[in-house]
């Protein structure tokens, strides 16, 4: 069973703004029936001000798809179209106190529906930029074409590189074998051979930072958020740094609370900005990320 946040469950069990919006003047239909998600977003926009007066949805999809749609309608109501278009899929996920990594594509669909509905209102034609290739990373819905192109464009040499550039492989890691095969193929094209264990590009040529310096930087970031956590009766501790994965433990009022996932996401963002690299922050209490398996 997925480990959904309370907020996701609430928006799933009591969706807001569900159903047809009779006098909608911007409608976005997006989705992929093969992926099991489809969404119609209906907007009622005030022509003089471009303000979204009302937003409704109809969704064919799983729990997090329905919750993401519900959240999206709440988020865009009252905004102007330009403001609404700034809502990113990460914002939708944050609004719901996070989504499991394998479910991030649900929030992506929400964002696409928004673009499509705005385009429809403005009389423009919206076309998505999905590549059509064999799906490699199911967690982040990334296909072979996208991975190949990224490897070519950036001369990538390791699975870790691919994760840093495309996110593919950053979730459950079951696609690493598939990514490796693409690396072997693309590297052969440029006359190189894939060597497992090659340090990733970023590690090989880091922004002049030793591991010790990195840890110090990480500690500094944690230090900077500590006062805020303490104010809420909690704390955070750095446990280990393993390449791109940073293990922390949350204690006090923060541990396990609803805000934990949200807080961690904020800290992760901050760390990425400071370190200028893709990292993943992992609370050591198990269960924060649920794992997918096949149908038994």
């Amino acid at each position: 069973m997925w480990d959904y946040s309370e907020k996701v469950k609430e928006h799933f069990f009591q969706p807001r703004n569900a159903g047809v919006l009779e006098d909608a003047n911007g409608v976005g239909d997006v989705g992929s029936i093969s992926c099991g998600d489809a969404l119609r977003l209906m907007l009622k926009v005030e022509p003089e001000t471009d303000i979204i007066l009302d937003a409704h949805f109809q969704t064919f999809g799983c729990g997090s798809a329905i919750a993401s749609s519900s959240a999206l309608t709440e988020m865009v109501k009252g905004k102007t179209l330009d403001e609404a278009l700034k809502v990113s899929n990460q914002d939708i996920a944050d609004y719901l106190d996070g989504l499991p990594p394998e479910k991030m594509h649900c929030s992506v669909m929400g964002r696409e529906a928004l673009q499509a509905a705005v385009a429809n209102y403005r009389g423009e034609v919206w076309s998505d930029d999905h590549e059509e290739g064999a799906l490699i990373c199911k967690c982040f819905a990334i296909d072979a074409v996208m991975i190949e192109d990224t490897i070519r464009a950036n001369d990538l040499v390791s699975v870790e590189d691919v994760t840093n550039y495309t996110k593919a492989g950053g979730g459950c890691s079951s696609c690493h074998e598939g990514i490796e095969e693409i690396l072997v193929k693309v590297m052969a094209e440029r006359g190189e051979s894939f060597k497992p264990g090659t340090p990733s590009k970023e590690e090989a040529a880091p922004a002049g930072m030793t591991n010790l310096q990195r840890i110090k930087k990480i500690e500094a970031v944690l230090e900077s958020v500590r006062p805020q956590l303490k104010r809420d009766g909690g704390d955070i501790e750095l446990l280990d740094v393993d390449g791109k994965t940073i293990y922390v433990s949350m204690t006090g009022a923060c541990a396990g609370c609803q805000m934990e996932a949200l807080t961690l996401q904020g800290i992760q963002q901050k760390l990425m900005e400071e370190l200028k690299e893709f990292i993943k922050i992992v609370p050591t209490k198990a269960g924060a990320l649920s794992r997918a398996s096949c149908n038994p």
Partner: peptide
């Protein structure tokens, strides 16, 4: 009731056909 493919007691008359189907 939440599904864009459904209306009242059956599937929508005018089939729902999203982009990127």
């Amino acid at each position: 009731k939440l599904s864009p493919y459904w209306e009242g007691e059956g599937p929508k008359e005018e089939a729902f056909a999203p982009t990127y189907a």
